[in-house]
């Protein structure tokens, strides 16, 4: 069933697609306040020569530099992001006291909200409250975009890999629970 979360995730996927079209790792996101999108972003690590310019940071900076909101706004915001937030973004979101996070597919290598660590709910981190985080919204689409990206060659890597032998896989294993 198409829920409101699917509607926003579809929009986040458009931003991920924009990243893909610009030779960036295809991850997109948006922040929703009272059923209104107040900021969006997509990965720009290659363009900026900066490995920390993830979709979430792009959107956060867009919202804070607009002059319309103070950082307290995130306490009332829901984040939709196509891939599970990495460890860095997970703790950034915790510092912003984000209300809720929905993501598409898990991030087995860097994920900070369940895959590698549980930064979103680790009780030893007492400075900022825990937040709920749920995955699986347009998961297959998020995975396929990433796979399409990784069969492509990345000329920005220190030693670019030849990937002409790679084949795009289309099978997707069911979500772990």
């Amino acid at each position: 069933m198409e829920t409101i979360h699917h509607k926003y995730m579809r929009e986040a996927l458009n931003h991920a697609q924009e990243a893909y079209d610009n030779q960036e790792i295809p991850v997109g996101c948006l922040f929703v306040l009272d059923d209104k999108i107040i900021g969006s972003g997509r990965n720009r690590t290659n363009e900026t020569f900066n490995g920390t310019r993830h979709a979430e940071f792009e959107a956060i900076d867009q919202i804070l530099s607009s002059g319309e909101y103070t950082s307290e706004v995130f306490q009332r915001c829901i984040l939709y992001v196509t891939v599970e937030p990495c460890v860095m973004c997970s703790y950034a979101l915790r510092q912003l006291r984000i209300k809720h996070v929905y993501y598409g597919c898990a991030n087995e290598r860097f994920g900070g909200t369940g895959s590698v660590f549980d930064i979103h709910q680790d009780p030893q981190l007492t400075l900022h409250p825990a937040y709920p985080c749920e995955g699986g919204y347009y998961r297959d689409e998020s995975i396929m975009l990433l796979r399409k990206f990784y069969v492509r060659e990345n000329e920005k890597a220190p030693v670019p890999k030849r990937k002409h032998k790679r084949v795009l896989k289309t099978e997707i294993t069911p979500m772990k629970k």
Binding site: T52, C86, V87, M88, C89, Y91, Q95, G112, I119, L125
Partner: peptide
């Protein structure tokens, strides 16, 4: 390439976000 091979000196231990930012920056 990013901060590959560089040293950083900081007065306080980096928080989790900054620590991972350093991983992303190599």
């Amino acid at each position: 390439y990013l901060c590959k091979g560089f040293d950083i000196f900081i007065t306080h231990e980096p928080c989790i976000m900054c620590s991972m930012a350093l991983v992303h920056s190599r």
